[in-house]
């Protein structure tokens, strides 16, 4: 019995070393280790032995099996390595050969880009700069400069991704307010769209990564009346229809007074439906006059200047426009989703 094991091992070793490609190896694997393979046959034959002998021989067969398995694996790796080397060492690759045009196909903008583009163009036409600020932020710009002190419950409200180096992933686009004040002369009109992060579990309407656009205007004399007018104009441009808005008090430490802006539900026209939770209104964006402490943090004298700011959820807006049920579609990179939006993107 033990002789036949040794013989089998030697035979297998020779065959494996002689195998020149993956297919040959696979055949050997079946021939030795498969259900009807030679090793399996040996194992089956153990039943005829006395119990004592069965035990020692059983172990020997199993060891042989493991050895053959390893030989095959090693050989496979070696063959693959050789193939890879051959492949990589090709000398005929000429990167200067002419490009080959891709077959004609319709490309698509990401729905967030489509919405962002509408917002950006509307504001550009109103004379606003479109700026772009870092996604990894400092505690200073994300909280301190925005009048959110360490103990403030607002830091609770916005659960934050912290980096090991002490930085954080911005929880809103608002850090751009103070950065823009530092970078650009007054008066200032700017929006800054981008990716923001909240430390929360994802579900149909919550996502740890989503998109916002922040708007900021600083001038000598601005009022709540101006803010309402701009918001109305913006929303009518985006939705391409008349929009009824209302402001109600909202608490955000970086604005005073601060508001929640609601729009009359466009699904039911205000009569009440599931979209607006039967209230007739949909909460859309927080806004307000920039808090004097935030102006100060940006080096702007609140005695001489006044600002307003808003933060609009682009993901939210895209969901409303295209009736997207699940917010996680945005980051899924699934062509079945991405192909559903209009060709040519911008419109």
């Amino acid at each position: 019995m033990s002789d036949s094991i040794t013989l089998l091992k030697e035979k297998a070793a020779a065959a494996i070393t002689g195998a020149l490609d993956a297919d040959a190896l696979r055949e050997l694997e079946v021939a030795y280790l498969g259900k009807k393979g030679e090793v399996t046959a040996l194992l089956k034959s153990l039943g005829q032995l006395a119990p004592e002998e069965r035990k020692t021989m059983g172990k020997a067969v199993n060891d042989a099996r493991a050895e053959i398995e390893k030989m095959i694996a090693d050989r496979r790796e070696r063959l693959e390595g050789e193939a890879l080397d051959r492949d990589l060492a090709e000398t005929g690759f000429d990167l200067t050969l002419p490009g080959i045009p891709l077959p004609a196909e319709a490309g698509r903008w990401h729905p967030i880009s489509i919405i962002a583009d509408r917002v950006e163009r509307a504001f550009e036409q109103l004379g606003f700069l479109v700026l772009d600020y870092p996604e990894v932020e400092t505690e200073h710009y994300n909280f301190d400069a925005l009048n959110i002190p360490a103990d403030h419950p607002a830091r609770d409200m916005q659960d934050t991704f912290w980096l090991k180096n002490g930085c954080l992933l911005r929880t809103h686009t608002s850090p751009g307010q103070v950065r823009a004040m530092h970078e650009y002369p007054l008066p200032l009109r700017a929006i800054f769209p981008g990716r923001v992060f909240r430390y929360e579990r994802t579900d149909a309407s919550h996502e740890h990564t989503f998109h916002q656009v922040e708007g900021l205007m600083i001038d000598r004399d601005l009022s709540v009346s101006n803010l309402i007018a701009i918001m109305k104009v913006l929303l009518e441009t985006i939705f391409e229809r008349e929009v009824t808005v209302r402001l109600r008090p909202g608490f955000f430490p970086f604005v005073e007074p601060g508001f929640e802006l609601d729009i009359r539900c466009m699904n039911c026209g205000g009569a009440g439906c599931s979209v607006c939770k039967h209230s007739g209104w949909v909460e859309l964006l927080p806004c307000g006059l920039v808090h004097p402490n935030v102006l100060r943090a940006g080096g702007v004298d609140p005695e001489k200047w006044v600002g307003w700011a808003f933060g609009l959820g682009l993901s939210r807006l895209a969901m409303m426009r295209y009736k997207i049920s699940h917010i996680t579609h945005f980051m899924g990179a699934d062509p079945r989703f991405l192909r559903q939006f209009p060709e040519g993107g911008a419109r």
């Binding site: 077959p103 490309g107 698509r108 880009s113 062509p335 040519g344 993107g345």
Partner: peptide, 8 residues
């Protein structure tokens, strides 16, 4: 996303 046919 235009003539080159890519999905963003």
């Amino acid at each position: 996303s235009g003539e080159l046919g890519f999905l963003e």
